[in-house]
Each structure stands twice: as structure tokens, then as C-alpha cells.
Design a protein around this nucleic acid. Structure first.
Length: 266
DNA sequence: CCAGACGTTGTT
DNA sequence: GTCTGG
DNA sequence: CCAGACGTTGTT
DNA sequence: GTCTGG
């Protein structure tokens, strides 16, 4: 297997919000997440949630969240920066994710996600584990992973609310995920990679079928039921549901954002 | 008891 | 908030 | 995730 | 090497 880094740390959300809401049966909470080809942690991403409306009726909404889950108790919003993924193996018990796992599951709908395959080049001996030989600079190849059947990939996630101080509200500016004094933040669950995905990296996001999506979102489901469902989803994952291709190395720089990033490579 | 962490990945 | 480490 | 920075003083 | 910003 190729050496590798990366997993689910960069997204492609180039989907039309109205079409997406329609396709997923959600009311649309409008914001600018469409047509983005290079979305890193800390940015606004769309999340799909089933939540009670003012009258207590469960409503499906597509709404903005900041990528990187910030627990309600975190003193510093930057806590979310290192929590943009949550291991499926431990999310139910980790302090940062436990509460969300039991009550605030979401789906992150994307066009695809990027993954950087890393292989050492020119390291033909001359080094040891303690002192690797020079000339072993890793070479990175970005891949775009997409759904084989749709222009839409459904990743299992968790979300959280956190009240913002006046200062934090000020700092958030026009961030749509921080409207009305609350920050909505989210994380993507990861698991061991399977099948051909393993040729690029040994972790992957937890991906859902449409049916699994409805079950995952069901708010009446608690932590234990959520855990059981998550195990079933992981066990049932079909690697053929995902296709991949290499894309422009320019995707590495988050300042680059456009369809040219994912044009087929010569 | 209080203080401090609370996360992921990869690498050697 | 809640758990772990000291 | 990758790219790019990596500092201090004083002041409000 | 490690942290921050995007």
C-alpha cells in the first residue's frame, strides 16, 4: 500500500443549494456554500439536520455550519480547528463529541472530498528509522473522491451549538454559521478505509446511502442506537460506491477555488 | 480535593 | 460539562 | 487538509 | 518542529 497522509480534510461543495435541498427533502436556509471547489476546515459547510421547529414538529433543514466542532464548554473557538474529524471508533465517548453523538447527528452533503496520497521519492537506502536518508522528500498527489452514482456524497457528521460572546460575535462578522448569537459547528466522522480507497489512505469519512441518511438523522435515536447504526453503516459500506481521480496540485492552496481544479489531469 | 484536558493525522 | 491525573 | 509563518514593545 | 490561517 502507498504511504499517505490526509483523509477528510478538504471538501468540494460545488452543488446548487436549491437543487440539493430539493433532492434531500429539506427546507433551505440560504447561504453561500455553493460552487466551492476547495473548502478547508474552518470554512462554512452545508449540513443536513432533522430538528424540531417552533411547534415541535421535526423539520429537515439544510443550514450553514462551521467545519470543526466546538463543544459548548470550549473557552476558545479555535478548539474546533482540530476537531474537524471525529473517529467513529471513539466519538460516542470522547468529551468533545459525546453529547453531539447522542443528540445532534447530521449529514454533510458534498460533491466530493480530496485526499493527498503521499509517496516517498528517491529514498533508496542511506537512511535508518532514526535518521532517514536525504532525498526522501514526500511527493503528494491530490485525489478527488466522489460518489459513483450521483454528483452527491453523503458523509455522516455531528454538530454542536455554542453561544457566542459579544466579542466572538463581532469577530465572526458575517459568517452565516454564527448568526443570531450562536455558532453552529460540525465534524465529519471517519473510519478505516476499505477497498480501493485504502490505496490512497487508511482512513475515510463514514459515507451513507440515502436510506441510512434518514436513519442517521432521526433525532429520537439516542447514543446507543446511533452507535449500532454507525457500526452497521461501516460494515455495509461498498467501496464501489466511490470513484476517484487525480486532480490539479493547485488544490493544495486554499486560495485556489474553481472548476479548473478538478479538470481531468493530462 | 483542584488543575487541566477535552482532537486527528502521520511519523519514526 | 465531565473525566483524568496529581 | 495544505501553505506559510515562526517577533517585540507599548498603547488604548 | 509546530502552530496559525485559509
Amino acid at each position: 500500500m502507498a504511504g499517505s497522509v490526509g483523509m477528510c480534510g478538504r471538501l468540494n461543495t460545488s452543488l446548487d443549494p436549491a437543487d440539493l435541498a430539493d433532492e434531500l427533502g429539506a427546507s433551505l436556509v440560504p447561504h453561500a456554500f455553493s460552487e466551492r471547489y476547495n473548502v478547508p476546515p474552518g470554512s462554512t459547510i452545508p449540513i443536513l439536520v432533522d430538528r424540531p421547529d417552533a411547534g415541535g414538529v421535526i423539520e429537515r433543514r439544510l443550514e450553514p455550519a462551521r467545519w470543526g466542532l466546538v463543544p459548548g464548554w470550549a473557552k476558545d473557538l479555535r478548539a474546533g480547528f482540530r476537531a474537524f474529524n471525529a473517529r467513529a471508533e471513539t466519538a460516542a465517548v470522547k468529551p468533545t463529541f459525546r453529547a453531539a453523538f447522542g443528540a445532534r447527528r447530521c449529514v454533510v452533503p458534498v460533491r466530493g472530498y480530496y485526499e493527498w496520497e503521499v509517496r516517498a521519492t528517491g529514498s533508496t537506502g542511506g537512511g535508518t528509522a532514526d535518521a532517514p536518508g536525504r532525498g526522501s522528500t514526500p511527493e503528494k498527489t491530490p485525489w478527488l473522491m466522489e460518489s459513483a452514482a450521483h454528483p452527491l456524497l453523503l458523509m455522516a457528521g455531528l454538530f454542536e451549538f455554542r453561544r457566542l460572546s459579544a466579542e466572538e460575535q463581532e469577530a465572526a462578522g458575517a459568517d452565516p454559521a454564527a448568526a443570531s448569537g450562536w455558532l453552529v459547528s460540525a465534524t465529519v466522522l471517519t473510519t478505516e478505509a476499505r477497498g480501493h480507497l485504502r490505496e490512497v489512505h487508511d482512513r475515510m469519512p463514514v459515507m451513507l446511502t440515502r436510506t441510512q441518511m434518514d436513519e442517521w438523522l432521526a433525532p429520537e435515536r439516542g447514543s446507543a442506537e446511533g452507535g449500532a447504526l454507525l457500526s452497521a453503516v461501516i460494515a455495509g459500506f461498498d467501496p464501489a460506491a466511490v470513484v476517484r481521480r487525480t486532480v490539479s496540485p493547485a488544490v493544495g492552496n486554499v486560495r485556489n477555488d474553481g472548476p479548473e481544479l478538478v479538470e481531468p489531469q493530462g
